[in-house]
Design a protein around this nucleic acid. Structure first.
Lengths: 212, 212
DNA sequence: TGATTTATGTATCGTTTGCTATAAAATATT
DNA sequence: AATATTTTATAGCAAACGATACATAAATCA
């Protein structure tokens, strides 16, 4: 019936053209999953938000789990790629940590979706047989810890922090605080409170090396 | 059929005596909720673990939500009352924080149920209309932050930390790290790693006051 | 134009969910 | 022994879940 022109020009295949914009629908799904998490977001509700019917969802994204995984990847790139790049680019490790945690506090309580990090919160209470989702969010969380660790090893080489710094533990502690921030965001803290907490991240670093 | 004697002598009412031990069944339910969270724990699975049938569950505990709330209270008292008491009893605030976070790391990865804190993790992805559960876990998490804050105000009065310490932010930061530890526990960290992270909590405290 | 291909809306599928109606069993009371 | 009260096990409820069968609509290709 209402067969609108596709809003986005694509390679154009043979059969009947898609009546909705794929990227736009994915963004709507992302928002639902972000706010509610994987399990409570029903396919019916997703379809309503995406303004499509179940057959379109399944033809385009495979199934609910695949839709979630694609939304998750899109979320990660959209919101966290740039802060991560800036974290690695900042020469001073103390400034890098301070900056990153302030940016994180802003993302976690961004006005549109003030509900913490999707990677941290969306798949906590999930059926044990959703193995791919569990592994994916776990790996993404691990990647952040690795990013911290790599940065601290560089800081040691550059003499910014002591050589005997327990890098895995420090990276783990920062990652723990970062993930905890998502729970605070979900619990309704104001952004000012979240930022005041985030400012404590840099305190866990060892004192600046004397020769730097 | 298998009508065993109740394992626990109670006031003994009029009708047919209960064939199972209420506290024992509650503990089994607690374990299921702890491992899986509220939503993924189906009534069928709960019944199987509790070794009772649905009518017994509903007659004894009301419904799934009430069973969860009772299990949650039982969990809180069983595992966290004593550490909280010791935290408040320890005279030195630095030692108090160190001790508490080491104990927390032990509880979160206790051999029987190595799955983080039930208050933090069991009701993250939950339907929005489970208002009582959401409010209860939120209040319990808030209570821990308040415990931290009260302790730090006392530490200021006793001259252990500077008077200009931002108590709400510091208490919030410790609470954030503590809640983050549950996510780490769920992600499969070893207890040694968790304890190394927990040891970083005390670093967020301001340096010891000179006159103390 | 006719054949082919893909997307769409409707209307449902089988399963699982939390929960309960019912009748029999087991106790106390009279 | 008869009655009242409570718990038990079986069996199944209505609703929601993720996912699809089907016929129709809209495009390309021959």
């Amino acid at each position: 019936m209402t067969a609108q022109r596709p809003r986005q020009s694509e390679p154009r295949g043979k059969g009947r053209p898609r009546a909705f914009d794929r990227a736009q629908a994915l963004n709507k799904a992302l928002e639902i999953f972000w706010r509610q998490g994987y399990a409570p977001a029903s396919v019916a509700e997703l379809c309503k938000a995406m303004e499509i019917n179940p057959p379109s969802l399944y033809a385009t994204f495979g199934n609910k789990a695949n839709l979630f995984l694609e939304a998750l990847r899109h979320y990660e790139h959209t919101y966290w790629d740039a802060p991560a790049r800036r974290f690695l680019a900042e020469p001073d490790v103390y400034s890098a940590v301070e900056q990153f945690f302030q940016e994180a506090a802003e993302i976690l309580l961004s006005p549109e979706t003030p509900c913490g990090c999707m990677v941290v919160l969306a798949a906590v209470n999930i059926s044990e047989d959703e193995k791919e989702i569990i592994a994916t969010v776990r790996d993404l969380r691990l990647a952040t810890k690795t990013m911290f660790a790599d940065r601290f090893r560089r800081a040691i080489q550059e003499g910014q922090i002591p050589a005997d710094t327990d890098v895995p533990a420090l990276a783990g502690a920062l990652n723990t605080l970062l993930e905890g921030l998502s729970l605070q965001a979900r619990d309704g803290l104001f952004q000012s409170e979240l930022k005041a907490i985030a400012a404590h991240a840099v305190r866990m670093l060892p004192p600046r090396s004397p020769n730097s």
